[in-house]
Design a protein around this nucleic acid. Structure first.
Lengths: 374, 374
DNA sequence: TAGAGCCTGGACAACGTTGTCAGCGTCGGG
DNA sequence: CCCGACGCTGACAACGTTGTCCAGGCTCTA
């Protein structure tokens, strides 16, 4: 569980209660924040304190803080003054408890450090911001249990909605949450065993395009290196590869396909194997950005030129020799579309779950146009 | 304000209250979630509901949910059963209100889509996770007002701590928050007018190293293209440039220095200007990853070879022709160090604010070793 | 078998905010 | 001069959870 490893303790266990004069009891232990006289760790002024200082009622403070009408300018001034003096800041936890909405959404993705997810996350954040919501991120590290743990932690926080890039393939655990009104959109990969909104790229079509491009330039022995086949995108791209090959009447050898973790070591080995032997591949189609980068490194050391088309665009791809031809998907558009759909769910303007597929784009830069070298 | 633009409304404004039988009144309007009979938007079971169904007291449910001792296995089973049946999930807002800690921290950075901040953010998340906390992200877009708005929104959520990559240069607005016990660490750039923990890279030293490297390879007319001078890192790197030049006894021409937004268009123009004229620069030192990428593009079209050293490492830098020599800073280490310090503040094991400087590393790959081409 | 002590369970208050509603004073009109 | 209306203010309950504290039933021992 998330809080099992927590090493900092809830404040109740260390902070004595207020005494009955309304003043606070200062703890004997020396704390970092003792530098600031008159305040104490975790002991913030409340509306009650503000009201007392301004000599008004609790509700009047609330009205001022929320800009509600019905307060005399003079009263408002007094309240504002008290707020400034005490450094009061409304406690949104209490507000949320009362109002029922948190104005925050959760985003669970694989790895925030991956250049594909950064722009996606930023796009979700921008849409959230436009709707006045904050974004809570979590990285699942491609682990189904961790995904579930994160998602449920977010639900416990009562996020209004969830954008999930699934790591697992069974999301029935989300059913009670969705029933209870948590808006949910899956991105990049479909949800498992559950009826929900999904926004994905055209992985199948994109892979078809990429492989056909290689075929059109004369290649027949084309390798495919992709992610673990249990990941939906990887499976779809493999299917695209197979379909393109089949359509061209090219039988696919088992040795040409390598699926597995995108760990550089494995990918490097896979690439080297395809490139050696009596009938080496003359072109490689790579299943995602991480694989592409590793394969580029392998090809840079390889004697013969080998054609390459990669799924996902990568920075500086145009400046390499040759430029790297890619099937680009629009990460920001994925995130934006998903987030917009999420808020339409929250607006109530959406009725039935839908599957939205965003097109991919083949960007030719040279590496895919190399002729077969044999 | 954050919630000014909100288009989805708090639930109280649309959901009628429970009637006195304890059953819920179903609203007339047709909602998406009407698909799920018996439940309604935002209407979740509470511990009270669970207790009623299991035929136990409220506190007993609380004990089961929190794994506290003192519950018969049989009772626990009944409670678990009720939890499952109702799809109960503890409301952390209420919990937070009661306990005073949210087990979440905020991270405000410039742009999550920037490849420099992705790993940093991920590192912060990992540390947070190890301490049982969630991470709330916000992008300031390099705008001081937006930074403040985000930070204060996070404070209103009562995050336990804040990791801030400052956009503005005055953080006195944080004083009441810090006084009230919000742990705070600034990363990448120091805080303005406030005494707080800071974790930065050795921008000055790194820039010195990079420029000295160029000087050592025979360059004297060296250009500097950097970010806006009001950004601390940019100023420090400029200072490193000037110092290295001065130490080598090289007078710096104004035309060699260009500071401003990292917009590709401006950077491109700046680079072209330095490279033209009667006394063009023979080498360029770039102030960050975005500038470096743009300058690489300019140099790729340039007739003469021009030496280049960039601040920040970039992916695939080793595969370009020539490889790009960089002064690398460790974004993940910055994030990790800052987050660890944050939780040490929360543990109470930290006394005084400190400034921590992480070293940079010169990585030579070729572009910095080109001799002057004239 | 009575008394002591332990274990389990539940009633209750409190966390800080917001919605409801009622009270109070003032002002204008009848 | 009285009454209604209106503008402003504040008392109070409720949101869902957890900590405190006490009651009741049990076991164990003398």
């Amino acid at each position: 569980m998330l809080d099992a490893t927590s090493s900092y303790k809830p404040m109740d266990s260390r902070i004595p209660m207020a005494d009955r004069t309304g003043h606070r009891i200062v703890p004997e232990t020396t704390r970092r924040t003792d530098r600031f006289p008159g305040t104490r760790y975790g002991n913030r002024p409340t509306m009650k304190d503000v009201a007392a200082r301004a000599g008004v009622g609790l509700k009047t403070v609330s009205r001022v803080v929320n800009g509600e009408p019905g307060v005399t300018p003079e009263t408002e001034r007094r309240v504002q003054e008290a707020i400034e003096a005490l450094g009061f800041r409304r406690n949104d936890s209490a507000r949320v408890l009362r109002k029922g909405r948190t104005a925050s959404i959760g985003l669970v993705l694989e790895d925030l450090a991956d250049p594909f997810y950064g722009p996606l996350s930023r796009a979700v954040e921008e849409v959230a911001r436009a709707h006045g919501a904050l974004l809570i991120n979590g990285s699942s590290a491609e682990d189904a249990d961790r995904e579930q743990e994160l998602v449920l932690a977010l639900c416990a926080r009562r996020v209004d909605g969830l954008v999930v890039i699934p790591a697992g393939d069974d999301h029935r655990y989300l059913e009670p949450e969705i029933k209870a009104g948590v808006a949910t959109v899956f991105v990049d990969r479909p949800a498992g065993h559950i009826d929900a909104d999904v926004v994905v790229s055209d992985n199948f079509g994109g892979a078809c395009d990429g492989v056909r491009h290689l075929i059109a330039h004369g290649h027949r022995r084309i390798g495919f290196i992709g992610d673990m086949p249990r990941i939906h995108t990887a499976a779809e791209r493999l299917r695209g590869y197979r379909t393109a090959m089949e359509d061209a009447g090219i039988p696919v050898a088992d040795a040409w396909m390598s699926l597995g973790v995108t760990d550089p070591e494995r990918v490097r080995r896979a690439a080297r194997e395809m490139l050696s032997g009596p009938e080496p591949v003359t072109a490689i189609f790579t299943g995602n950005n991480r694989v592409t980068v590793t394969v580029i490194r392998v090809l840079a050391e390889h004697a013969r030129p080998v054609a390459l088309v990669g799924f996902d665009d990568i920075e500086l791809a145009d400046l390499l020799q040759p430029g790297v031809t890619v099937v680009a998907q629009d990460a920001a558009a994925l995130g934006r579309t998903a987030a917009e759909r999420l808020f339409r769910q929250l607006d109530g303007t959406l009725i039935a779950p839908e599957r939205i597929e965003l097109p991919t784009r083949l960007i030719t830069r040279g590496s895919g146009e190399l002729p077969p070298a044999d």
